[in-house]
Each structure stands twice: as structure tokens, then as C-alpha cells.
Design a protein around this nucleic acid. Structure first.
Length: 281
DNA sequence: TTCCAGGTCAAGA
DNA sequence: TCTTGACATGGA
């Protein structure tokens, strides 16, 4: 992998086992939009246009420093997905696995967006997240109409009634209370804790159950052993291996069985299950 | 119009 | 510990 300055951005060449479109639209992030083959998104106070041509990706606007400090980690470009995939085939047989990377999104944003995901549709979650950003997030300099995801203090500044008016529904008090508790420091150091302790800490927050905690750890803390089980993954586990049981029980068993390959495999099952169900990427 | 969604929570068995 | 029903909302 090599980076060069290219116009106002950065071109990264020699990127193997990475499908930008599948990675951005497989249900782990809610802030990316597509215009033909170009994608626009916001993370960590930056707006970005990104696209891919074979094994090269283009990021703009972006400096080499920003690539090193922000986007390389966000897109999880340092991990060897070729190796991860070949190891994962021990569990799923000799099939071609999609080049989906597990994004490393901001922890608070991941937590809140997945609280919103509970009993909700992906298109509606996207709309909700966007409205929250426009209402409470800081505007991105030099990018009209783009807003960063609100920080804990921004979100805590909204009343429960305002959150409901944005469409959060019964999740409004969960968001308000969670934002308040995060402001008081309940997320500090969570990313460095062992899986079980980190999960316990997250599940102490309102609106965070077994599945939302796993999503937060996987997509917001790089915890590759987290294995969120939702309706789609539950369906896939049943069809593929004939396993039965409650979702938390299946998540526990999958974690034991797949170890650090669990997070990636779970995303593959989710992606394939939705493709088969006609929901697309 | 009805169904359903990347679930969680509280109550009751 | 496990099961059950309520919960807001709007896309399909």
C-alpha cells in the first residue's frame, strides 16, 4: 500500500481485499451517500469524498497527515484482510468472501446510531442520524450542508421533546440519558478494556442491550471478536448451520467458535443474508 | 392498509 | 434464568 498526494486529496494504491462500496453500505455506517461511483461521508469532524478504481482508492479533501491520523484507521486499512479471509474459510468452507472491512467509527457516534437502530429500518436510521447531525452537530468548514455527528455535550443539550420531534420515538429518553452519562465520563477507557468488561459497561447504559453493545464494540472500538446477532444474522445462522436458540445465546456460542474472526464473519452473514432477502447493499 | 425493522425493557413465571 | 408484550415511526 502506497500513498501519494493527488490533486486536493490522497491516492492510495495497492489496496488489496477492500471493496469501498460494500464496506460503506453493508449496514455498519449510516452517514455515507452515493452518487454513481463516488461516495460522500462525514466522520471525526471531516467531510470526505471517496471512490475506488481497482486497487486504488481516492480520498478528497485529504492530506497525507489526515490519511495517517484519521482515514487509514477509519477504513481499517492496516489489517491483512486476505489473511483474515483465508482463516475465516476454515469456518464457512471454500467460498469467496466479500472484501468488506470493519470500519472503526467514532465510539459515541456508533453507540448512539445503534441505539437508534433498535427495532428500526436502515433507511429510517439513516434519516434520523442525518437530522440529528443537522440539528445538533457542528457544521463542517468549507463543506456547505455537512454536519459532524453531535458530541455528547451537543446531544445532551437537546430536550427529550426535541429528540422526539426529530423522529427518535421511544428511544428519545435513551439518547438523552446516555448522552448525559457519557458526558459524565462513563465511556472513558472502554476501548482499552477486555471484551466482557467493555460490554458490561456499555450495557449499563439505557437502550443498550446485548446486540447494541456488540455493534458498538465491533464498529466503534475495533473489537473483532464481538458478534452482534440481529434478525438477519439469526436467520443466516439457522439456515447455514441449523443452530437454534435465543440471540444472546447464539452470540455467545459464535464468539467461542469464531474468536477474533467473529466480527468479520458476522458482517459477511449479515451482508449475504440481506442480499438473499432482496435488501441489497 | 398492514407489516416489519441491525432490540430493549420490565414484569411475571 | 427465560418468555412475553409494549414501544414510535415511516419505508415498502
Amino acid at each position: 500500500m502506497k500513498t501519494v498526494v493527488w490533486g486536493p486529496g490522497v491516492k492510495v494504491t495497492g489496496v488489496q481485499h477492500f471493496d469501498l462500496e460494500k464496506t460503506l453500505f453493508c449496514g455498519q455506517a449510516f452517514r455515507w451517500t452515493a452518487e454513481r461511483t463516488r461516495f460522500f461521508g462525514v466522520a471525526r469532524g471531516r467531510a470526505l469524498e471517496a471512490w475506488q478504481e481497482e486497487d486504488s482508492i481516492f480520498l478528497s479533501p485529504c492530506t497525507l497527515k489526515e490519511f495517517d491520523e484519521i482515514w487509514q484507521e477509519y477504513f481499517d486499512l492496516k489489517r491483512d484482510y486476505g489473511r483474515l479471509q483465508s482463516e475465516a474459510r476454515a469456518f464457512v468452507g471454500d467460498e469467496i468472501l466479500p472484501d468488506i472491512h470493519i470500519l472503526r467509527q467514532p465510539l459515541f457516534e456508533t453507540l448512539i446510531t445503534f441505539i437508534l437502530s433498535a427495532n428500526n429500518h436502515i433507511p429510517r436510521i439513516r434519516g434520523l442520524v442525518e437530522r440529528l447531525a443537522e440539528r445538533a452537530g457542528k457544521p463542517i468548514p468549507d463543506w456547505p450542508g455537512a454536519y459532524d455527528f453531535p458530541g455528547p455535550e451537543d446531544l445532551a443539550g437537546l430536550s427529550e421533546a426535541e429528540l422526539r420531534s426529530l423522529g427518535c420515538g421511544y428511544r428519545a429518553p435513551f439518547l438523552a440519558e446516555t448522552a448525559q452519562r457519557v458526558m459524565e465520563g462513563c465511556l472513558e477507557g472502554v476501548g482499552e478494556l477486555p471484551y466482557d468488561e467493555a460490554k458490561k459497561r456499555l450495557m449499563a447504559l439505557p437502550g443498550v442491550g446485548d446486540k447494541v453493545a456488540d455493534c458498538t464494540l465491533l464498529y466503534g472500538a475495533g473489537c473483532m471478536e464481538a458478534f452482534p446477532v440481529d434478525v438477519w444474522v439469526h436467520r443466516a445462522l439457522k439456515e447455514r448451520w441449523g443452530v437454534e436458540g435465543s440471540r444472546p445465546k447464539l452470540a455467545l456460542e459464535a464468539r467461542k467458535r469464531f474468536g477474533v474472526h467473529g466480527g468479520y464473519l458476522q458482517q459477511v452473514l449479515f451482508y449475504e443474508s440481506r442480499q438473499a432477502g432482496g435488501k441489497g447493499a
